[in-house]
């Protein structure tokens, strides 16, 4: 912790000030070196030096949202990871996925998770869904300098809005770009290199009012389509038993499908594609 040596050993003033309920704002005063956007970067481009994470899709259902991500990390033309996890719970009712520079993204997601929990503990109440999306936008924007040097991170955020008047429309999706955001999306969205293909698949298969089970199937199909045409997106790896990470956020909270559950869906999708490769 960045504090001058104090012989009394007490917590530095910045801890005891009334200050802010935002953890990132607190860190910017107490320990700026822990914030990814605050580090000076050497000149030059770092593209191709670091693993990149790829495709995430998310769609709304009558119960909330579903988010699914493939497991591949790439470094140039090489596969750097086969079992990278890109979809995470942000808090009890929302999910965050990322595409782009994996190292910075992991850190951003960790920070975002702590940010939401921190606010909840300090204030005794959760941030609104829009508040969470705005915080994430600010955190993405703070990474703009690194993004311009080839270390871009693009998250996608989706959650169950506890304040929604109609619980069947409580699932909401927000997308971002390197300069921040958020942009609210209707129905479905995808990010990452394979998102072009995944979104085309979703465009044909998505319809409002889907159940969570249907949406999970459609999400995995969309990832399969992305992997079909994008070399940086990995399909279900049946030989190693590595399946897409699928998470849901509903009124009951967030949940990650177990490996067995994800395997069932992924194997069904693969089996269907053996009949009809176009889906």
């Amino acid at each position: 912790m960045a504090a001058a040596f104090d012989p009394s050993g007490r917590l530095p003033d910045v801890f005891l000030n009334v200050g802010t309920s935002s953890f990132t704002q607190f860190l910017s005063a107490a320990a700026p070196d822990l914030l990814p956007g605050r580090r000076p970067l050497p000149p030059g481009s770092a593209t191709g030096l670091v693993p990149h994470a790829t495709t995430i899709v998310t769609l709304t259902t009558t119960d909330g949202v579903v988010m699914a991500g493939d497991r591949r990390g790439t470094m140039g033309n090489l596969i750097s990871s086969r079992d990278m996890r890109k979809v995470h719970p942000a808090d009890a009712h929302s999910l965050v996925g990322f595409a782009g520079t994996a190292g910075i993204a992991m850190e951003l997601v960790r920070l975002f998770q702590v940010e939401l929990e921190h606010y909840e503990k300090i204030e005794g109440a959760m941030l609104s869904l829009d508040g969470k999306a705005n915080r994430l936008a600010a955190m993405v924007r703070s990474n703009l300098g690194a993004a311009m040097q080839g270390l871009a991170v693009i998250p996608i955020f989706a959650g169950f809005d506890l304040a929604a008047a109609d619980p069947t429309r409580a699932g909401r999706i927000f997308s971002f770009d390197v300069a921040g955001g958020p942009y609210e999306e209707v129905g479905y969205d995808g990010i990452g290199s394979g998102s072009l293909f995944a979104k085309s698949a979703l465009k044909k298969r998505y319809r409002p009012g889907m159940s969570t089970e249907e949406a999970i199937r459609v999400a995995v199909e969309a990832l399969y389509d992305a992997a079909d045409d994008d070399s940086a997106t990995g399909g279900p790896d049946l030989s190693r038993r590595i399946y897409p990470v699928v998470m849901t956020a509903t009124a009951e909270g967030t949940n990650r499908l177990s490996d067995a559950e994800a395997a069932t869906v992924a194997e069904a999708v693969v089996a269907a594609r053996l009949e009809n490769p176009g889906g």
Binding site: D83, P89, I242, G253
Partner: peptide, 21 residues
């Protein structure tokens, strides 16, 4: 933790027995 979120957000712990690593 794989991320900084608390473990209860993953739902019941079903990740054991995974063959991924």
């Amino acid at each position: 933790t794989e991320s900084a979120a608390s473990a209860d957000l993953e739902g019941p712990d079903k990740s054991t027995g995974s063959t991924t690593g």
